[in-house]
Lab assay of single mutants.
Amino acid sequence: MEVRTIKVFTTVDNINLHTQVVDMSMTYGQQFGPTYLDGADVTKIKPHNSHEGKTFYVLPNDDTLRVEAFEYYHTTDPSFLGRYMSALNHTKKWKYPQVNGLTSIKWADNNCYLATALLTLQQIELKFNPPALQDAYYRARAGEAANFCALILAYCNKTVGELGDVRETMSYLFQHANLDSCKRVLNVVCKTCGQQQTTLKGVEAVMYMGTLSYEQFKKGVQIPCTCGKQATKYLVQQESPFVMMSAPPAQYELKHGTFTCASEYTGNYQCGHYKHITSKETLYCIDGALLTKSSEYKGPITDVFYKENSYTTTIK
């Protein structure tokens, strides 16, 4: 009895394709271990004539594949690729409408935090270190965002349907971005203890939790000093293409032309909904596939993004 075979390709990165001759009487799992086709788990399936010449994702289970996976995804987590594939199996079914010149995501599976993050990423200057993220990001900007969303979920250790947080998501993504040249110098002034300067680099240099107003941050924000008295913390120097200011959701007025974009969060910790506000020729609110415009805006804002380049204080 002759062994019926077909020729397929296996890959971990969709760049390096490895030619395989597979036995049609055995499952993919018996031949390769966990195997995925377009995100779908085909591990328990036997090869079919229609699979001839198709590319299958496999887990990096030998040295060659491990090197290829690390170079593309910059992670050695053995569960990463499987999590990416199972997320992709959902995100490829989502709709990605162009809204006001940006790629958004039609609401499904509690994905409003991903839509808000995706919209924000198209408006701030950011370059990702893992080629996987950078490639998928370019495709997302062009309207094909399924891979990018699935990668975000995998890097953030999230599953489809789980509630997510924009600030946490951005923080994970910033860790995989090139923020080497970003720098922030802060000064804390206390009447009792004097003053202390701190220099922050990388992710810490672009994120701040405690106030939404970048102007206020430049002037000074009140913080408790270690001595128990009130101290003032203010920005001395900022070198970065953008800054992200966050605070627990509270009524906040966004003035046209003073910011790049913002995240609105309605609801409580267990259950809520994100919308995205962007400042173009007027203010726009993007909620999944829905767009509304207004000249002014007041609502429960939790993150505001500002364009920056270089700032030095005039406070002496």
Rank of each mutant, 00 (worst) to 15 (best):
E2G: 07
E2A: 13
E2R: 09
R4C: 11
T5Q: 08
I6T: 10
V8P: 02
V8F: 00
V8Q: 02
F9A: 08
F9C: 08
F9D: 10
T10Y: 11
T10S: 10
T11V: 02
V12H: 15
V12N: 08
V12I: 15
N14Y: 08
I15Q: 14
N16G: 05
N16F: 05
L17Q: 09
H18K: 14
Q20Y: 09
Q20L: 05
V21R: 13
D23C: 14
D23P: 10
D23R: 11
D23W: 06
Y28G: 01
Y28F: 10
G29E: 11
G29H: 07
Q30N: 07
Q30L: 09
Q30D: 13
Q31M: 09
P34G: 13
T35Y: 01
D38V: 11
A40P: 04
A40L: 13
D41N: 14
D41M: 07
D41R: 03
V42N: 04
T43K: 07
K44N: 15
I45R: 13
K46A: 10
K46V: 11
P47H: 02
H48F: 09
H48N: 15
N49L: 13
H51P: 00
E52G: 13
E52M: 12
G53Q: 10
G53W: 10
G53I: 03
T55S: 10
T55L: 07
F56L: 12
V58W: 00
V58M: 07
L59V: 12
P60S: 08
P60E: 06
R66D: 06
V67A: 11
A69V: 11
F70D: 12
F70L: 13
E71I: 09
Y72M: 14
H74T: 02
T75C: 09
T76D: 10
T76I: 07
T76R: 13
D77E: 10
P78W: 11
P78V: 12
F80I: 03
F80E: 01
L81N: 00
L81S: 03
L81G: 03
L81T: 09
L81R: 05
R83N: 09
R83A: 05
L88G: 00
L88I: 08
N89Y: 15
N89R: 08
K92D: 01
K93F: 09
K93V: 05
K93C: 07
W94Y: 00
K95R: 13
Y96D: 02
Y96W: 02
Y96R: 00
Y96S: 02
Q98S: 14
Q98P: 00
Q98D: 13
V99Q: 06
N100E: 14
N100A: 07
G101L: 01
G101T: 01
T103M: 03
I105S: 05
I105T: 01
K106L: 14
K106S: 13
W107D: 15
W107L: 15
D109Y: 03
D109G: 05
N110W: 05
N110E: 04
N111G: 02
C112Y: 04
C112D: 15
C112Q: 08
C112I: 01
L114I: 08
L114D: 02
A115G: 09
A115R: 01
A115H: 02
T116K: 06
T116L: 03
T116Q: 08
A117G: 07
A117H: 02
L119E: 08
L119V: 15
T120V: 06
T120I: 13
L121V: 13
L121W: 01
L121H: 03
Q123L: 04
L126F: 13
K127R: 13
K127N: 12
F128D: 01
P130E: 03
P130V: 12
P131Y: 01
P131E: 05
P131D: 00
P131G: 03
A132C: 08
A132P: 03
Q134K: 11
Q134C: 11
Q134S: 11
D135I: 09
A136Y: 07
A136G: 06
A136I: 01
Y138V: 14
Y138C: 15
Y138P: 10
Y138F: 11
R139W: 08
R139F: 15
R139E: 11
R141Q: 14
R141P: 01
A142Y: 13
A142T: 12
A145C: 07
A145Y: 05
N147Q: 15
N147F: 00
F148W: 03
C149S: 04
C149I: 12
C149L: 07
A150Q: 01
A150V: 00
I152H: 01
L153E: 00
C156R: 04
K158I: 07
T159H: 14
E162G: 01
L163R: 14
L163F: 14
G164V: 03
G164T: 05
G164E: 00
E168Y: 01
E168I: 05
E168H: 08
E168L: 09
T169H: 00
T169P: 00
M170P: 01
S171N: 10
Y172I: 12
Y172K: 15
Y172H: 14
L173Q: 01
L173K: 01
F174H: 00
F174L: 11
Q175R: 09
H176M: 12
L179S: 06
L179E: 03
L179Q: 04
D180T: 09
D180I: 05
S181G: 09
S181Q: 11
C182K: 02
R184N: 04
V185L: 08
L186S: 08
L186W: 09
L186P: 03
N187G: 09
N187P: 04
V188N: 04
V188T: 14
V189F: 10
C190S: 02
C193G: 03
C193H: 06
G194I: 00
G194K: 03
Q195T: 13
Q196F: 13
T198R: 13
T199H: 10
K201E: 15
G202C: 06
V203N: 08
V203D: 01
V203Q: 09
E204I: 05
A205D: 03
M207W: 08
M207S: 09
M209Q: 13
M209D: 15
G210C: 06
T211W: 02
T211I: 08
E215G: 06
Q216E: 13
Q216G: 10
F217V: 08
F217N: 04
K218P: 04
G220T: 03
G220Q: 05
V221Y: 06
I223K: 05
P224T: 11
P224A: 13
P224R: 13
T226N: 12
C227V: 02
C227R: 02
G228M: 04
Q230M: 13
Q230P: 13
Q230I: 15
Q230T: 13
A231Y: 02
T232G: 04
T232Q: 10
Y234F: 10
Y234E: 02
V236Y: 09
Q237G: 08
Q237E: 12
Q238F: 01
Q238K: 05
Q238G: 04
E239T: 13
S240Y: 01
P241W: 02
F242H: 05
F242M: 06
F242K: 06
M244K: 02
M245N: 04
M245T: 06
M245E: 08
M245Q: 05
S246C: 06
S246L: 00
A247S: 11
P248E: 12
P248I: 14
P248N: 07
P249Y: 00
P249A: 14
P249R: 07
A250R: 15
A250L: 13
Q251H: 11
K255W: 05
K255R: 12
H256N: 09
F259V: 05
T260P: 02
C261I: 05
A262Q: 04
S263Y: 03
S263E: 04
Y265G: 08
G267C: 10
G267L: 11
Y269R: 15
Q270E: 10
Q270A: 06
Q270H: 13
Q270I: 10
Q270G: 11
C271Y: 10
G272H: 05
H273I: 00
Y274W: 15
Y274H: 08
K275M: 04
K275W: 02
K275D: 03
H276P: 02
S279K: 04
S279D: 13
L283S: 05
Y284F: 08
Y284P: 07
C285S: 07
C285W: 00
I286C: 04
I286Q: 03
I286Y: 08
D287E: 10
G288D: 05
A289F: 06
L291P: 08
L291H: 13
T292A: 09
T292L: 08
K293H: 08
K293W: 06
Y297P: 04
Y297S: 05
G299T: 04
P300L: 12
I301S: 03
I301V: 08
I301L: 05
I301F: 03
D303T: 10
V304S: 04
F305S: 05
Y306E: 03
E308C: 14
E308K: 03
N309G: 13
N309Y: 05
N309T: 14
S310M: 11
Y311L: 07
T313K: 09
I315R: 11
K316A: 15
